[in-house]
Design a protein around this nucleic acid. Structure first.
Lengths: 259, 259
DNA sequence: CCCGTATTGCGCGTTGCGCGCAGGAGTGCG
DNA sequence: CGCACTCCTGCGCGCAACGCGCAATACGGG
């Protein structure tokens, strides 16, 4: 193998997956080889499933990695969909609901795309992306400072917007949840916002997949007033749910079949 | 529109996204139209970011189409990049800038992803998506009611957030622009917001690709105070720019090479 | 050293593509 | 009702990109 072939093909994949698109002409100029060679490279890479050919170039098959969020969307997909399906079924026509940031609330938004006569307010970009093309859903973004890690909004603008609205139901996510301490998050800014969200809503649901139950990864807590509902998936261990029952929290285990 | 065009294009998207791949020949046979028509359909759908063209057909774009990728697939990419590159070069370290909703401002956001010591406020989802993973850029979302068509925010929440901030520079998009009347949009809600955005900013730029110059597609206008700058691309006809020169508007023609 | 394998550049014929043109269907207006 | 306007459609043409075969070249093992 003439030297550099392997490296060149790897570089083509890297270029294509970072910029999304790569043209035969550009690649040819970049590597100092003829377009024929590039075409052959692309044919190889396409056969290997690393790229897709286009007219005049190649396109990344799975665009940017964007690991953190995409992976979180990927993991526990079935559990999140089950939770989201149950949550979506609680919502009545004409209501105004509040969706927190996070992948589980994003899954809920996905279920609501076909809804009509519904107002959704949110602090999460995943929710916005799901509902961006949902023509018949009225969407209010609360705004605020973008937290890059969670793709959600926090801070004064979000709090100010919250003070101008109330909601029939709030669906909150969490990094951890405890029967007495409430919701656990990485920062007090987030927990203050979640407390506000809960206070502005008639009914509060905490959507959390079973692996996060009982976890206490951080030390900022949002206390919740009695009457909230914990929604989790069927993999939840009974002993993990017991403290919530004892504390008088309503516990819902979402059926994967979509009940 | 001859009946069925809309339905056929929707069906093409469905076929492509379910089977992953669709050829021009097959589609032509399936719908009983000529390959030319299918190619035009695909061109439309590609510009809308719903598909990617391949040699002889089309391929489904990833489940969650990456913003920047959709933009590259979309129309007038080179022009928008040229405008965005010039605009990005105007911004100084430590500034706070305001980015309107729209694909051109999305392209500007793309150029700012690697920036440091910069605060970006925006009403556009394309901007948010571009900067979602830009760790070192401080992003403020103004919030508001989502306009599904333009993927931007308008209304009271956005206006309230604007009243709490001021900016060094504002970069506005437009559906049309006129030397005397200012910015043309589909609704007065949008134009009022743009007027507010302009008033809250030291320097105002209108980013608009040349095809929109002189177009008056709607009848809601945002008047701009003197001193604003029109930024367009090299395809702009001199006679289209003349009225702006006469009105004392600073006109910038962005060099595609990236000057 | 020799040989097999993989790669490269080049020229060829083929194929799909974009564009311009003309006709037709739907829409809004006087 | 006619008229202008817009959008979609089919067709033909020039062109760009493609795939393929050929000969030359580079690398690695026996």
């Amino acid at each position: 193998m003439p030297r550099g072939t392997r490296a060149r093909r790897a570089a083509i994949v890297r270029l294509a997956t970072t910029s999304g698109l790569a043209s035969v002409e550009d690649l040819s100029a970049t590597f100092g080889v003829t377009p024929s060679t590039i075409r052959r490279d692309l044919a190889h890479l396409e056969a290997a499933g690393e790229l897709a050919r286009t007219y005049g170039g190649a396109i990344a098959v799975a665009a940017h990695p964007e690991a953190s969020l995409r992976q979180r969307l990927g993991e526990a997909f079935d559990a999140k969909r089950a939770i989201a399906t149950w949550a979506a079924a609680q919502i009545r026509a004409g209501e105004t609901v509040l969706l927190d940031a996070g992948s589980t609330t994003g899954a809920l938004a996905h279920e609501l795309r076909a809804a009509r006569d519904l107002t959704v307010a949110t602090t999460g970009m995943t929710v916005l992306e799901e509902l961006a093309t949902a023509e018949h859903v009225h969407v209010e973004c609360l705004g605020g400072t973008l937290r890059h890690l969670s793709a959600g909004f926090v801070g004064p603008l979000a709090e100010a917007a919250l003070s101008r609205m109330t909601f029939d139901r709030a669906f909150l996510g969490a990094d951890g949840v405890d029967a007495r301490d409430g919701i656990c998050e990485a920062s007090l800014q987030q927990t203050r916002l979640k407390e506000l969200m809960a206070h502005r809503s008639e009914k509060v649901y905490v959507l959390i997949h079973s692996a996060k139950l009982g976890r206490r990864p951080f030390h900022a807590w949002a206390r919740l007033d009695p009457g909230w509902t914990l929604v989790t998936d069927a993999d939840a261990a009974p002993e993990a749910l017991a403290p919530f029952h004892e504390a008088g929290v309503e516990v819902v285990v979402a059926d994967p079949a979509g009940g």
